[in-house]
Amino acid sequence: NKFNKELGWATWEIFNLPNLNGVQVKAFIDSLRDDPSQSANLLAEAKKLNDAQA
């Protein structure tokens, strides 16, 4: 379904953000699993944090 596809894509993108540490990645992935409907918002937050830590 739509959420599974978005969840998978967001998970892959978060895993590939180079400036996040393992704890941050795990926290974002756990949040995605808790509420897949928020995948776009969580991915945006992860990208912002990644950019801030560059």
Rank of each mutant, 00 (worst) to 15 (best):
E13P: 02
N1H: 11
G8S: 14
E45A: 14
K2T: 10
F15P: 01
N4L: 12
N21I: 05
S39W: 15
Q53M: 13
G22R: 13
K47W: 06
E6M: 10
K5G: 13
T11R: 09
Q38F: 10
G22N: 15
D30E: 11
S31W: 11
K5Y: 11
S39C: 14
L17A: 01
N19A: 06
K5C: 15
G8E: 15
L20Q: 00
A54S: 09
K26I: 07
K26T: 07
R33N: 12
E13K: 13
Q53C: 11
N16Q: 10
E13S: 06
F15N: 06
I14Q: 03
W12M: 07
K5D: 15
P36S: 03
K48A: 11
N16S: 09
N21R: 07
A27F: 15
L7Q: 05
Q38T: 04
V25T: 04
K48Q: 09
S39E: 06
D34I: 12
D51E: 13
D35Q: 08
E6T: 08
A10L: 06
K2C: 15
I14C: 05
K2D: 14
W9T: 07
L49R: 02
D51K: 10
N21G: 05
N21M: 08
A10M: 10
D30R: 14
N41G: 07
K48T: 05
A44L: 10
Q24M: 03
W12P: 02
V25M: 06
A52P: 01
N41C: 11
Q24A: 02
N16G: 05
N19E: 03
D51H: 09
L32G: 00
L32F: 04
A46T: 01
T11A: 15
L32Y: 03
A54D: 06
A44I: 10
F15E: 09
N50G: 01
Q53S: 04
N21V: 04
A46I: 02
F15A: 09
E6H: 08
A27R: 12
T11W: 12
L32W: 04
K2Q: 13
D51S: 09
K48Y: 05
N19W: 14
N50K: 01
L43I: 10
S31L: 13
S37W: 05
W12Q: 07
F15R: 08
N4T: 10
L7T: 06
K26P: 00
A27Y: 15
N19D: 03
S31Y: 09
L17R: 00
W9A: 11
N16R: 07
P36G: 02
W9R: 11
N19Y: 14
Q53K: 04
S37M: 06
N50A: 03
D35R: 06
N1C: 15
L42M: 05
K47N: 04
F3Q: 08
P18D: 03
A27C: 12
A40F: 12
K5A: 12
L17G: 00
K48G: 06
Q24R: 00
E45S: 09
E45D: 11
A44R: 10
P18Y: 05
A44D: 08
L17N: 00
A44S: 09
F3L: 12
Q53Y: 07
G8Y: 15
W12N: 06
A46L: 03
L20G: 00
D30C: 14
N50P: 00
S31P: 01
R33S: 05
N41F: 14
A46P: 00
N16P: 00
E13T: 09
P18V: 08
V23Q: 13
N41H: 12
K26H: 07
F28G: 00
G8M: 15
L20W: 01
D30F: 06
T11V: 15
W12E: 04
N4E: 14
K47D: 01
D34G: 10
I14F: 05
K48C: 09
P18T: 11
G22K: 13
V25H: 03
Q24L: 03
V25R: 14
W9L: 11
N4Y: 11
N19R: 02
A10R: 04
W12V: 05
A27E: 08
A44T: 07
N4Q: 11
E13R: 13
A40Q: 11
K47I: 12
R33D: 03
G8F: 15
R33I: 13
L17Y: 03
A10G: 04
F28K: 00
L49E: 01
W9G: 05
Q38Y: 04
N16W: 06
S39I: 15
I14P: 01
G8R: 15
A27T: 09
A54V: 07
W12D: 04
P18N: 05
S31K: 15
P36Y: 04
P36F: 05
W12I: 05
A40I: 10
L17Q: 02
F3T: 10
I29A: 03
L7I: 13
L20R: 00
S39H: 11
P36T: 03
D34N: 15
F15I: 12
N1W: 02
V25E: 01
A10Y: 15
E6P: 06
D34T: 10
N1K: 09
E6G: 07
D30K: 14
N1Q: 10
P18Q: 06
P36L: 04
S37L: 07
F28W: 02
A54C: 10
F3S: 09
V23S: 13
I14K: 02
A40E: 09
K5V: 10
N1T: 07
D34H: 14
S31C: 13
A27G: 07
F15H: 05
A46W: 02
L43V: 14
F28P: 00
K5I: 09
L17M: 10
P36A: 03
P18C: 14
L42A: 03
T11G: 07
A27V: 07
S39F: 12
F3H: 11
D30V: 08
N21F: 07
T11K: 10
N4S: 09
V23W: 15
L49C: 06
K47L: 07
N16D: 03
